[in-house]
């Protein structure tokens, strides 16, 4: 059975100019121990998907319909207190900016020990030992000496490691990581990705990795969901998606990544920009920018359709195709 199931999730933002639909009909599953990458450009709704799952949507955003199930139990309609307990114990969260997660007034040791004793049946002494173990595991040198330091005494890369330790120390089954390496320099980024990957594999933790960096996804994820204008445009195994994307948007996205190993005269580009939430076009949201657009795309919105090895929401893969 899947660890996490998201079914037809719809998130709305009521504004005075009408209701904006930020996420529409988003469905996917994550199996135990699996890493699902979620990519898309800014405003595609990838971070919002993560926030909706962990129950931290920014008001006035709200889940309008759909379900989020963790091991078969609904968690999208839980009261705040219950959700908070799940967030620490069963779902760990890692955000882009480590400073927002760490309390600057407490030592990192205190924050780790508190998290461990709240969620696991251990005493303070044992919790401290566990905390040191986690800090060593995420690669903090001299963990035993540094456990009583405050967050500001660490560098950016080290802080993000502490955040990861904090997310992992209650041994959750799922981690929602939102752009965990974006604020870091490339060399530090590589260290953190390598560490996350190893930890997820060793502990059998499932992960939802939200990022705009296709390279990070390619290295870390098992499957990828590509998002566009609040919907999933394509989902499938990472190898297939990177090499043989089916959806025209995914194809454009992959093509526009500048390659490191050669110089190309002209990069593939997708003209135009992603529509604002207040002006999503009729039919397929991608149709104004799509090189393969045809009549049906202008009027009818495609569901996720079988496109061989991946599933793509594109009418090219409907019965009979573009005919």
């Amino acid at each position: 059975m899947s660890l996490l199931q998201v079914k037809n999730l719809r998130v709305e933002f009521p504004t005075r100019r009408g209701t904006l639909v930020a996420l529409d009909d988003v469905s996917f599953e994550i199996a135990p121990g699996e890493v699902l990458g979620v990519v898309g450009e800014s405003g595609a709704g990838k971070s919002m998907t993560g926030a909706a799952i962990i129950g931290l949507l920014e008001p006035p955003g709200r889940i309008a319909s759909g379900q989020v199930l963790l091991e078969g139990r609904r968690i999208d309609n839980l009261p705040y207190e219950k959700m908070r307990r799940i967030r620490g114990r069963e779902i760990g969260a890692i955000f882009q900016d480590p400073l927002t997660t760490l309390n600057p007034l407490y030592t990192i040791g205190r924050q780790l020990v508190e998290t461990i004793t709240t969620h696991l049946p251990v005493g303070p002494g044992e919790a401290r030992e566990k905390a040191i173990g986690w800090l060593e595991l995420v690669g903090i040198p001299a963990a035993r000496e540094r456990i009583d330091s405050y967050p500001h005494e660490f560098s950016g890369g080290m802080r993000q490691r502490v955040v990861i330790a904090l997310a992992l120390c209650a041994e959750p089954k799922l981690i929602v990581a939102d752009e965990p390496t974006t604020a870091l320099d490339v060399s530090i980024q590589a260290q953190v990705i390598a560490m996350l990957k190893t930890l997820a594999r060793e502990k059998g933790t499932a992960m939802m990795l939200v990022t705009h960096d296709m390279g990070v996804i390619a290295e870390t994820a098992d499957r990828v969901a590509v998002m566009y204008a609040g919907r999933i445009s394509e989902i499938g195994p990472v190898r297939e998606l990177v090499r043989h994307a089916r959806h025209p948007y995914s194809q454009g996205l992959m093509g526009s990544i500048p390659p490191l190993d050669r110089r190309v005269e002209r990069l593939t580009q997708i003209d135009g920009a992603m529509p604002r939430l207040s002006a999503i076009p009729r039919g397929c949201a991608f149709n104004p920018r799509c090189p393969k657009v045809f009549d049906r795309c202008l009027v009818e919105r495609p569901e996720l359709l079988d496109a061989g090895t991946t599933r793509a929401s594109c009418w090219l893969y409907a019965e009979g195709g573009a005919a």
Partner: peptide, 24 residues
């Protein structure tokens, strides 16, 4: 060399990257 080594590999040739240690 370390900088180049650090860039995630989109082509997924399966090469094992050895990230440079430490920080600036």
């Amino acid at each position: 060399r370390a900088l180049m080594e650090a860039i995630p590999d989109l082509e997924m040739t399966g090469r094992q990257r050895i990230p440079v240690g430490g920080e600036v």
